[in-house]
Design a protein around this nucleic acid. Sequence first.
RNA 1: GGGCAUGUGGCGGAAUGGCAGACGCUACGGACUUAAAAUCCGUUUCUCUUCGGAGAGUGUGGGUUCGACUCCCUCCAUGCCCACCA
Length: 828
Amino acid sequence: MASYDFKGIESKWQGEWDKRRSFAAPEPTPEKPPYFLLVMFPYPSGNLHMGHVRNYTIGDVLARFHRRNGRSVLHPIGWDSFGLPAENAAIKNNTNPADWTWKNIDVMRGQLKSMAISYDWDREIATCHPDYYRWNQWLFIKMFEKGLAYRKKAAVNWCETDQTVLANEQVHDGKCWRCDNPVTQRELSQWFFKITDYAEELLTGHEQLTPAPGRKGWPEQVLTMQRNWIGKSHGAHVDFAALADGKKTGDSIRVFTTRPDTLFGATFMVLAPEHPLVDQLTTPAQKTAVDAYRVKAKSLSKIARTAEGREKTGEFTGSYAENPVNGQPVPVWIADYVLTDYGTGAIMAVPAHDQRDYDFAKKFGLKIIQVIKPASGEMPEGRAFEAVGTLINSGPFDGVPVEEAQKTVAAWLETQGKGKPTVTYKLRDWLLSRQRYWGTPIPMVYCDGCGIVPVKTTELPVRLPTNVAFTGTGASPLAQAADWLNVPCPQCGKAGRRETDTMDTFVDSSWYYARYVDPKNTALPFAKKEADKWLPVHQYVGGSEHAVMHLIYSRFFHKVLRDMGMVSCDEPFSSLLTQGMVTLGGSAMSKSKGNVVDPNSVIDTYGTDTCRLFILFAAPPSQQLEWSDKQIEGIWRFLNRFWRLVETLSGSDETRALKRTPGDGAETIDSAELVRRTHVAIQRVTSDIDVDFGFNTAISAIMELVNSIYLYVDLGDAASTTAVETAAHLLYPFAPHIASEAWERLGHATILTETPWPKADLSKTVSSSVEIVVQVNGKVRERIRMAAGAVEEAVKAEALASLEKKGITLAPKRVIYVPNKLVNFVGN
RNA sequence: GGGCAUGUGGCGGAAUGGCAGACGCUACGGACUUAAAAUCCGUUUCUCUUCGGAGAGUGUGGGUUCGACUCCCUCCAUGCCCACCA
């Protein structure tokens, strides 16, 4: 028998769904509640890769499943289409990033359509389109007005030769990717979002995302990663009085520490080289050395400065400060291992109990004082002791355990006016300025008279100019477009100058989910009425590599939208499925690594249904999937095996009457057993999809059902017809074309897409007899068959009898009994 | 260096603390065929075996338990995200 005609079937059903507009999101009603299913939209890099196929297939299974389970499904797609690769391609080929991007979008849209992912294509969006990015600008201005967008200085990677800013990925081994010259740091005024204002709520908001009865929530590991990323830590601010000639100058240096308990062991201080007090503290004798060190720190690229395993460097300022707990003078140093933008940009160093401080002290011959006694009594040899113990050399706090001292020392400092207990977050404000062309222009104008003025919202969008050259050198392309750059000040009308930085593309993806609810709105990013209909997103599906950045930025944006009165809920995504990466040779498929497998090769040979089934069957969705096409043949065989059953049942009367004759020695099952297995399959597949996202096991359950039908003798009767129809139902979310065709061939006038999902009759799933494992001291010795629900005493007696038959007699001290499963005789 | 995952046959993987290896691939044997493909029927964790079976086995080493792939601790390896976070 020939293989099934996947080409004919797939194009037939894609045409049919298109004609019926089967996937346009219907208006939600109380009877048909909303189900917003969102998949992370792709960057249009050129072609779909296997990671996309996996992501969008998972999404489609859920969309098709919930549509048939009485929900109004909104399943949209779009393009995260601003970004560096388009600009790099433009530099390389001397073209415009827009042309490259739109061409890629056309290719990838075609691929998604050929995979029959059930999107509502009427809602397609692209972030590089002015109809989208004008709302980035609108939101930016609103945030600026609320004080959530502000400017401050921050360092960028700078190539002196090309006179241009480089992204981290354009820096290789501290050198420029184009000209191979060393990369340095440069301070620029840049735009920031004040995400730190929301640090506490981003943390407490997790309560709404924790799995609970009736709510899938987010994976625990993602919540943990976000918690660590936000990095709330309790500690203390401590003020060290600056000294000159042994006397207090009146200035003080504030540090943040998570270990106030070690304060008596603070033997020196370290400031970031950029710390504002450095000039003042540096003595004339040390000025040359300190200045040289600061220049050197600046000349290193961010990457080089933070490279792993770097030897500690630093310089003494010549000044001292007073340790507030014991009045001891401590030398003040600068070093680049202290960061300006965490804590206060200055630390107290406790070399005995912090490894970095220890390394520094050893290198520069600074004093080390032990203030914590390990429980073992032994200090480690040649390194810092960072664990807990009790305090020593700590004046009034001697003998206090570390855990207690962390609180009492901080409280005591406060009574002395020398510090106070403080909470700090690792989360930093979001630097959104990019010195790039292919992004959303930041809609601000610099005016000599009025300062920084936002563009009037009625004047939006500020479109990207098209008459620019892409050379990869010099200032941002936007700074070269003179007619675009020079505009009147929106406030006073005098000559002004546009901001030439564009926005980080994470801005685009921070609120795109909300645009889908009202994608054509020309007055607002989206209407509140539409947002309230669909939000929050019921199920979000995407790569686990976005666990922190994208998923924190969107949560931040959503809370800002809420505070602006644009949405009603607190969190954007109520349930999250993080899929694992698709790898080849152990690392993620990427063009630059050249380890990409083109999905088209699979689709052309075996069809979309096989491809979809295959990628879901290969591994559970949250796990990493190492690509191998070995199993495709098996999936192909399975679909053909299913198809032959459909052909047999839908054939001529003679064929229908044909009784199957399973081969010699093959097991056969009766109709009661086939009915039972049919209901078991419905039950397993339904709960695998709906509860566990266990698509691989759902597919194996369908395979088992099909295998069972082949063991059945009276093929063509009611039980077997129902079984084959059920297989079509269950196959639908995974392989919708073949399932739809099968349903039609089996004589149904309805189309499967519009047919309700089958329900398992649980009373029919129970088996009349069960196998019970008989163990002796935990080792399996025998298996017995008993009627399901047999009483304990009968099972034990039967178990003992069966052992005796094998020549094992025992007098157990204890018997463990698990109904319908196991008897364990212990202690014979 | 930190955070988060993962580790089970030749391979992908399955298993509410209760039969380890479901389902599928590969390989091998058989049926059908002039032949091949397709299909169908078997075997396929390892070691030993008197062919009845016995023993070992889920990265390493320990622990809890009548019973551990599953829970706890140690270490090792791999992947992802971050980068000296006081």
